[in-house]
């Protein structure tokens, strides 16, 4: 996993609440056995007017010229609800997003983001409203300073928190399996005292 310390990028405003993982990556694209190839299908049914993905929907935010190259996705509450499919954050990441900003996330999606190196920033409803308002006025570029837990832009400085260990994992880009395997002795000791039926 790549290390994340700070990132500056263009914000794409996706003005929708309860965006579920079926919208992020519909089921017909879950049949791959690799981790790549999902970005092209991100928000498929919103991005394309046809099933084949040839006819772009000009009204959808990610198809608009001004948001090309955006790397920060701004959304509303309960982002990533629904299924546990990690294909959803894989698609978001492969499309080019490094950060998602929303007032709240579904738990599994949030964890999946941390595990693959996307920074899921939580801000207050009021801060989110301000960011959406600013996006309506023109392009918004933000800097996500993970080390100091700040979202910084013109006239904006918001604080956020990921929790100590999640922040450490993202900053160091740690291999979480490798990290836990260092605790093997503790795991073995735990297993030795499990009741026989368990």
């Amino acid at each position: 996993m790549d290390k994340f310390t700070t990132h500056t990028g263009l914000v794409a405003p996706l003005d929708a609440a309860n965006v579920d993982t079926d919208q992020i990556i519909p089921k017909q694209f879950l049949q791959k056995t690799e981790r790549v190839g999902f970005g092209q299908h991100l928000f498929h049914d919103w991005r394309y007017l046809d099933n084949e993905g040839k006819q772009e929907n000009p009204d959808f935010v990610l198809n608009q010229a001004q948001y090309q190259g955006a790397s920060i996705l701004l959304a509303r509450e309960n982002f990533g609800c629904g299924s546990s499919r990690e294909h959803a954050p894989w698609a978001i990441q492969e499309f080019g997003f490094k950060v998602v900003i929303a007032p709240s996330y579904a738990d599994i999606f949030y964890g999946n983001c941390i595990n693959i190196g996307i920074v899921p920033v939580k801000l207050t409803d009021q801060q989110i409203n301000t960011l959406f308002d600013k996006c309506q006025q023109g392009d918004v570029t933000l800097t996500i300073d993970l080390t100091n837990n700040k979202v910084i832009g013109d006239d904006i400085e918001y604080s956020f928190s990921l929790g100590e260990f999640h922040q450490y994992c993202l900053e160091q880009g740690i291999d979480s399996v490798g990290w836990t395997l260092k605790k093997l002795a503790k795991i073995e000791a735990f297993e030795a005292q499990l009741p026989a039926w368990q």
Binding site: S84, E86, I108, N112, T180
Partner: peptide, 23 residues
């Protein structure tokens, strides 16, 4: 009992454990 992502599936495969924040 709870659902997990594929990175966590891999974590359980290799370690039979998971890291979890208390709910």
């Amino acid at each position: 009992a709870f659902g997990i992502g594929t990175s966590e599936v891999e974590h359980v495969f290799a370690t039979q454990t998971l890291r979890q924040t208390k709910a």
